[in-house]
Amino acid sequence: MATRRIQRTEESRRLLLTAAAELFAEKGYRQTSFIDIAEKAGISRGSIPWHFGNKLGLLEAVLDDRLHTVLTTFASPEGGRSGNPLDQVMGFIRLPVTRLFITLLAEAVEVDSPIRAHYARLHTALRQGVRARIPAEALPPGTTPEAFTILLVGAVIGVHAQWRVAPEAVDLEAVRTTIRALLPAGLG
C-alpha cells in the first residue's frame, strides 16, 4: 500500500512538473497560475504547495528537472552528435525544453525578477557543460575557453530566439555551417 502511495505521489509530482514547464514556456512564469497548472495536470491545485511549497519552489523544480535533461543530453555520446561543442550547442536549440528557457529569459533579465538567480544558475550550468568540451589548445592565441564559451552559448541563445520568432527565416543548418566555418580548427 505504501509503495502505491509513493508511486502516486511521484506521478503527481511529474504531472505537475510537466504541466508547469509547458505553461511557463507558453505563457511565462508570471502569467501562469496554480489553477492553470492544476487544470493542465489534472490534479488538485492544493497539490502544488504540498509538493513544492509555492510557485517559486515549483519553478525551481522545473528548472532543475529541465537542466538535468539538458546536461544529461550534453553528457551522452549522442547528445552532441560527435561530442563537438558546436554540435551540442546547436542541438540544444531543437530540444523542446529550450523554448522554456527562452520564454523565461525575458522575465529573468528584470532586476527584481524572482527567477533571476535561478536563471543565472542555469546559464552557469550550460556554460560549464559546453566549456568541458572545449580544448584550450584549439583556440586562437589570446582567446580564453571561458570567453569562447560565453560567445558560443550567447550566439546560440540569439539564434534560438530568432528561430522561435520566425522559423521560416532561420535556416539552422546554414547557421551551423557558418559558425563551423568561423571556428578555429579543432572546434568546428
Results as ranks from 00 to 15, higher is better:
150 I>A: 15
61 A>D: 00
64 D>I: 09
18 T>F: 04
108 A>M: 09
34 F>T: 15
92 F>E: 06
37 I>G: 06
170 V>R: 00
58 L>M: 06
92 F>T: 07
160 H>N: 06
131 R>C: 08
130 V>M: 08
159 V>I: 15
31 Q>K: 14
60 E>M: 07
119 Y>E: 03
160 H>M: 12
104 L>F: 07
118 H>V: 03
83 G>S: 04
71 L>P: 01
163 W>F: 13
164 R>P: 00
106 A>E: 14
148 F>T: 04
25 A>L: 04
150 I>K: 07
53 G>E: 01
151 L>W: 12
13 R>G: 10
181 A>L: 13
149 T>H: 02
82 S>W: 11
78 E>D: 08
85 P>A: 08
1 M>S: 15
152 L>W: 03
171 D>W: 06
62 V>C: 05
162 Q>G: 09
126 L>W: 11
14 R>V: 10
118 H>L: 15
90 M>W: 03
27 K>V: 07
103 T>N: 04
93 I>V: 12
10 E>H: 13
63 L>D: 05
13 R>A: 09
96 P>K: 03
87 D>I: 02
148 F>A: 06
92 F>W: 15
11 E>Y: 09
44 S>D: 14
20 A>W: 05
61 A>H: 02
46 G>I: 04
37 I>H: 05
103 T>E: 10
145 P>T: 08
172 L>I: 13
40 K>Q: 14
154 G>R: 01
118 H>A: 12
118 H>Q: 14
2 A>Q: 13
5 R>Q: 13
171 D>M: 08
51 H>T: 10
41 A>E: 04
13 R>M: 05
53 G>N: 06
169 A>Y: 01
167 P>I: 09
168 E>D: 12
3 T>D: 13
44 S>R: 11
109 V>H: 03
82 S>A: 11
167 P>C: 08
83 G>P: 01
115 I>G: 12
7 Q>S: 11
10 E>N: 15
111 V>F: 08
44 S>V: 03
61 A>P: 01
5 R>S: 11
119 Y>V: 07
120 A>N: 11
127 R>Q: 13
73 T>H: 04
71 L>K: 06
34 F>K: 12
57 G>Y: 00
12 S>A: 15
13 R>F: 00
155 A>T: 13
135 P>R: 12
40 K>P: 01
140 P>I: 10
181 A>W: 05
80 G>Q: 04
175 V>N: 06
104 L>M: 14
184 P>E: 05
186 G>V: 11
52 F>N: 02
90 M>D: 02
144 T>Y: 02
107 E>W: 11
164 R>C: 09
37 I>M: 01
178 T>V: 04
48 I>T: 01
173 E>D: 13
157 I>E: 14
24 F>L: 05
154 G>A: 04
114 P>W: 06
173 E>P: 02
68 H>C: 09
117 A>I: 08
7 Q>M: 11
